[in-house]
Structures are given as C-alpha cells and as structure tokens.
C-alpha cells in the first residue's frame, strides 16, 4: 500500500500523519482524527454533507484526497464554536429551525460560513444559488434560508 506523510492544520491544530494515498479527506477527518461532525452522505459529490473549508474555501471532502490537504488549513464544524459559544451561523440554525434530522447540517453550516465570508449581505436568490451543492431532505430549505439571513444580519453587526 502506498503511504504518504502529510501535515495538515485542522481547526487550528497541526496534525502529522502517515496516510494511504487513497485516503479521502472525509475518512481522514472522521476515522483518523475522530472528527465525526463532518458527515459522509452520498460519497459521490452530490449531497454536500461532507463540506469542509480548505484555506477558508468550501469543498467536498469526499471528493478530495487527504494528501491534497497536505500543507493546508482545514476547518470542520468542530472548529466553529469558540470556548463552547456557538458560531453565529450555528446559533442561527438552532434559533430559526434550519434543521430537522441534522445530518446535512454540518455541510450547510460550513457552506454558509464560506458564503457569508465572500458575501456578507446576500440576497435570497444568492443564498439559494450558494446552497446548490448541498441537499436537505427534511426542511424544504425554508428554515435554512431564514437561518442564513439571520446569521448574515448578526455577522454584519446588526
């Protein structure tokens, strides 16, 4: 088996690990680092529930090799709360019914964090287009869109 040594900063902490070349980033996070907040859903790049940030940009960790994260910074859902205080996007999803079963939620929240970094004041149309790499089977998206509007407002300081 072909192995590679990688050094990845995950949620601010540096991890050095020897991984098989074929290890997906999603598997590395969940099975090697036990960061199980990142979900595996379709594992074919459709559902988006494995979304994480690499250097601040959202990607699907089921379509990315762990070796491709070598030398980069990864942020997962576990990296958002600070000292037990939820990130404003997490808080908004709780307060505005942005989830039902919750399985897709880490992916939606990571996508939202990246979206609001790029565009702090998105229109509803921009929010909906920005979510087209994430699927939710429960909510019908209404609560998710409301949550994102509320999070955007809070992050803008209102």
């Amino acid at each position: 088996m072909s192995k590679k040594t990688i050094e990845v900063v995950v949620n601010g902490r540096t991890h050095r690990a020897e991984v098989p070349a074929r290890r997906m980033l999603s598997d590395f996070l969940r099975d090697d680092l036990f960061l199980t907040g990142t979900k595996r859903g379709c594992e074919t790049g459709v559902c988006g529930c494995c979304s994480v940030l690499i250097d601040g940009e959202v990607i699907k960790s089921c379509l990315s090799l762990a070796v491709h994260a070598d030398g980069h910074e990864v942020t997962t859902i576990e990296g958002l709360a600070v000292d037990g205080v939820l990130h404003p996007v997490q808080e908004a999803f709780v307060n505005h019914g942005g989830l039902q079963c919750g399985y897709c939620t880490p992916g939606f929240i990571m996508t939202t964090v990246a979206m609001l970094n790029d565009n702090p004041n998105p229109t509803e149309d921009e929010i909906r287009h920005g979510l087209n790499g994430n699927l939710c089977r429960c909510t019908g998206y209404v609560g998710i869109v409301e949550s994102i509007k509320a999070a955007a407002e809070k992050l803008r300081g209102n």
């Binding site: 790049g45 988006g48 979304s51 690499i54 940009e57 959202v58 990607i59 699907k60 379509l63 990315s64 996508t111 990246a114 979206m115 287009h129 920005g130 087209n132 790499g133 994430n134």
Partner: peptide, 10 residues
C-alpha cells in the same frame, strides 16, 4: 454559475 460552490473551489 458552474456546478456548485464546492466544485468551483476544487
């Protein structure tokens, strides 16, 4: 507008 944000970033 290609695909979705995750694919555009990778």
């Amino acid at each position: 507008r290609l695909a979705n944000p995750q694919v555009r970033n990778q």
